[in-house]
Amino acid sequence: MTYKSDYDFFIQNKAELIEKYFGQFILIKDQVVVGAFSSLTEAMVFGLSKFEKGSFTVEECVASSFEPQVFHSRVML
């Protein structure tokens, strides 16, 4: 399997994975969550020590919102 199929696994299971691993970085290899880490660096170091480069993916489990937030400052004239 490739990192592409692992990424597709993440997208298809995103809600469930976010609920279980919220705020963590998960390493996915062959459509299996191999580990959950507190930082991207920690996940990458672990992944590169165990697997071939390009054979896994690391994803951050956070809810994303694409709605922009707009903040207005008040100006006194």
Rank of each mutant, 00 (worst) to 15 (best):
F22A: 14
I26N: 01
A15C: 08
V45C: 05
Y21R: 03
A15N: 13
S55A: 08
G35D: 06
G23Q: 08
L17T: 00
S49C: 07
E19V: 08
G35P: 11
G23N: 06
Q31L: 09
G54L: 06
I26K: 01
F46W: 08
G47K: 03
F25N: 10
K53R: 15
F22R: 15
T41M: 11
V45P: 02
L27N: 03
G47S: 07
Q24S: 14
K29G: 07
A36N: 08
I26H: 00
V33N: 00
I18T: 07
S38P: 13
L40T: 12
L17F: 03
I18L: 03
V33W: 02
I26S: 00
L27T: 06
T41G: 12
K50L: 07
G47T: 06
L27W: 03
Y21H: 10
G23S: 04
V45K: 10
T41K: 10
E52D: 12
L40W: 10
A36Y: 01
Y21Q: 05
F37S: 01
A43K: 03
D30G: 11
G54R: 06
A43D: 01
L48A: 11
K20F: 03
E16D: 11
L48M: 12
K29N: 10
S38T: 11
S39Q: 07
E52P: 03
Y21I: 04
V45W: 04
D30N: 13
L40Q: 15
E52L: 13
A43P: 05
S49H: 10
F37M: 07
L40A: 15
K20Y: 04
Q31K: 15
S55D: 08
G23A: 03
M44L: 15
K20T: 11
V33I: 09
A43L: 02
E19R: 12
D30W: 05
V45Y: 04
K29Q: 09
K53D: 14
V34M: 06
F46K: 10
K29Y: 11
S39T: 13
G23I: 07
S49E: 11
V34D: 12
K29P: 07
E42N: 12
F51W: 06
I26E: 01
K20Q: 13
S49Q: 11
M44G: 08
Q31H: 08
A15L: 15
S39W: 00
